[in-house]
C-alpha cells in the first residue's frame, strides 16, 4: 500500500463529519456525526467521489479503518465488546479532542 499522507494515526479519536450532498459518497449514514477511533491506516487512494464522475480522482485521499462502539452507533443490543469498523477517507474525519 502507498505511504499515507493523511492527518491521523492509529488510536486517534475522530468524529465523522455530518454532511450530505449529491454524489458518490462512500461514508455510510449510520456513522455520520459519530465518534470513533483510527484502527488502521490503509494508505492513499484515488478519491472515489471524483472517479465516479469520470475525473482523475486526484489528489489522493488517505483511507482509514475507523472503529465504532455499538453503543455509539446503534445504542444497545449487541455484545459489550462488539464493534463496527468502516473504511473512511480522510476528508470525512475531524479530530476529536
Amino acid at each position: 500500500m502507498t505511504p499515507a499522507s493523511g492527518r491521523f494515526n492509529p488510536g486517534d479519536r475522530v468524529t465523522v463529519k455530518f454532511e450530505d450532498r449529491p454524489g458518490h459518497l462512500r461514508t455510510p449514514w449510520y456513522v455520520r456525526g459519530k465518534h470513533g477511533w483510527i484502527e488502521r491506516v490503509y494508505g492513499d487512494f484515488l478519491n472515489p467521489e471524483l472517479l465516479a464522475f469520470g475525473k482523475d480522482g486526484l489528489p489522493k485521499k488517505t483511507l482509514y479503518l475507523v472503529g465504532f462502539d455499538y453503543d455509539e452507533v446503534f445504542g444497545t443490543g449487541q455484545g459489550p465488546k462488539d464493534k463496527v469498523l468502516v473504511d473512511i477517507y480522510d476528508h470525512w474525519l475531524e479530530p476529536l479532542a
Binding site: 461514508t27 455510510p28 455484545g79 464493534k83 468502516v86
Partner: peptide, 17 residues
C-alpha cells in the same frame, strides 16, 4: 450463537479494501 465475551467485529467494506 456466540457468548457475550466474544468480540464481534463487523467490517463495512465501503471503499477500496
Amino acid at each position: 450463537e456466540l457468548p457475550d465475551e466474544v468480540e464481534v467485529r463487523v467490517h463495512d467494506s465501503t471503499a477500496d479494501i
